[in-house]
Design a protein around this nucleic acid. Structure first.
Lengths: 323, 323
DNA sequence: TTGTACGCGTTATCAT
DNA sequence: ATGATAACGCGTACAA
């Protein structure tokens, strides 16, 4: 209710002086400063953010556009961003888009409206041309690789298989099976390629019947283990593209009295909570860190660093009892 | 860049008329309206949100205060809130507090600053008196039961054990064990009480050695199963306060050739993803729905419904293969 | 060191 | 139906 004018009246100074006190500007005597602070206390004054925003053309709010909130990746990302924002005294405005173009436009317009100082794009269905247009109105940073010249910070997924294979080789596993989800998806293809490249250029032994695909669930994993068990030649390790499938394999392995990792080593992907619960060696995406980095990037962009950047973060291997 | 004045100049009308067109107000001829719309298009104009906010004293932003973002409960809650906000054309400002009083004050001040129209408190460490004080400056709704007269919408945890026990009785399980986490926490106490009340007033059989506490992890669950297995008298079912512990019990049961649910039925709590993966009957908290309800509540509060409300949402049983 | 006066972009009120 | 003009609350050159 109380505004700067009332404070000025009560403290018997001008509004400018009140403003100076509020913003810690120099050139104000201790007496007046005290008087102003006293008036602020007694009137229970708080500055109106909207007025400040209008006057400064800045809100200290960062927007983030995500397809959905209730998803491990985006949740983790938002969490990292929230932490970094809190440190930088920024606020975080979250907009779920459901991968809907119209919803995305709402978020883009917030940037043009000056409701947010910068926009972080976790994932988008909009075109590179559209992003370029939006970028003219304010800083944007994308968390996935995409065309276009705007800033990007994203996780380098290419080396996941490499990390796992090196880990297995270090531990002297040579007969290695592979179990993927959708082999035609982007990650599926790159993982499959990486695996077979590795097989070619090393002394790893890999049989045709040691390859499984389209495995997505705990139950699928149990079935894989049963299939493996029926083979005449058993691998010593299996690389799995999903923690839940890996968990199913381990579960069934124990039922079949196959010891993990002594008889069969198992690795998962994504460091889901089930992998920690069951002690599965897996690959962690530094998503939280990505959230922090992306806020640092957009913050420096907002503060005048107008050259766009492209950074990547590497994956990390989490070694547990299953290898 | 372009503002309302430029539009007015280009369309050869007054700023008032532009504002009328922008807000769909009556009393403006089709010709002038067209001229204004044309100017808006040609100058690529978007209204400045901060100016509107200042002028209207309203932002259409809802704030939400959470201890942490990266937590299943709060993530789900934020997700529901995001969905509801999107439907009501509201934005969602997320503030992680880390249960720090000072961080919470930042969020409270946003309400007083008029940066947000209403505040949702997922969980707080501040006192009821403090909340009452904040409530004088703007609408707040809390997602957990608390003292004080502000609006509250929360999940009624009291009937979880009841739902499970009725379910087990329906399926004719009579010899029932209990396995809790921290027995001295709020939920621990209420679950323990509810269980033993049930035992007293029904024909359920429960032996002293069928009670376990301070079990939190998958490994703890395996140990519980081993303990059970060593007993002379086995229960036919075990009620577990945590999905991970339940998963560990089932895992170990299979290793011991104890069939689930034929020899031993197992129930979990919280409907975590591992319970779906392993087919565990569990209790679901309607958290997403809570998020939706809480936004509806604060929205009606903002729009003049100034009587405070207190609503609860019931828990739900998810029946799967483990019973 | 302090105060005056204006600008920020919009909506609302009141004439006309 | 339209257009001045006054809020909204604050920051800030500029003057003193």
């Amino acid at each position: 209710m109380a505004n700067i004018t009332e404070i000025a009246r009560q403290a018997k100074v001008s509004r400018s002086t009140v403003s100076r006190v509020l913003n810690d500007h120099p050139y104000v005597t201790v007496q007046k400063k005290e008087a102003v602070l006293e008036a602020i206390r007694s009137l229970d004054y708080v500055p109106n953010r909207n007025a400040i925003n209008l006057s400064k053309g800045k809100t200290n709010i960062i927007g983030v556009m995500v397809p959905q909130i209730n998803h491990p990746f985006f949740n983790n990302l938002i969490s990292g961003m929230g932490e970094a924002c809190s440190r930088l005294n920024l606020s975080l405005l979250v907009t779920p888009t459901n991968n809907d173009f119209e919803k995305e436009k709402v978020s883009f317009d917030q940037l043009r409206y000056k409701q947010i100082d910068g926009l972080v794009i976790a994932s988008t269905v909009s075109s590179a041309e559209f992003l370029a247009e939006v970028n003219r109105h304010g800083p944007i940073v994308s968390c996935e690789w995409s065309e276009g010249s705007h800033s990007q910070v994203y996780i380098d997924h290419s080396n996941g298989i490499e990390l796992i294979m090196n880990h297995l080789i270090e531990r002297s596993y040579e007969k290695i099976a592979l179990c993927l989800g959708n082999p035609d998806s982007g990650v599926g293809k790159s993982r499959k390629n990486a695996f077979y490249e590795f097989v070619d250029k090393s002394k790893i032994i890999h049989l045709k019947e040691w390859y499984f695909e389209k495995k997505y669930s705990f139950e699928d994993g149990r079935a894989v283990m049963n299939d493996l068990y029926g083979l005449s030649a058993l691998p010593r390790a299996i690389v799995v593209g999903n923690d839940y499938v890996a968990a199913g394999i381990i579960h069934q392995a124990k039922l079949l009295n196959v010891k993990v990792p002594e008889d069969l080593a198992v690795t998962g992907f994504d460091n889901q909570s089930i992998s920690e619960a069951m002690g599965i060696t897996t690959i962690d995406q530094p998503i939280h860190q990505l959230g922090i980095e992306v806020i640092k990037t957009i913050d420096s962009l907002i503060n005048g660093q107008h050259k766009n950047v492209g950074n990547t973060l590497p994956l990390q291997l989490i070694s547990r009892q299953s290898t």
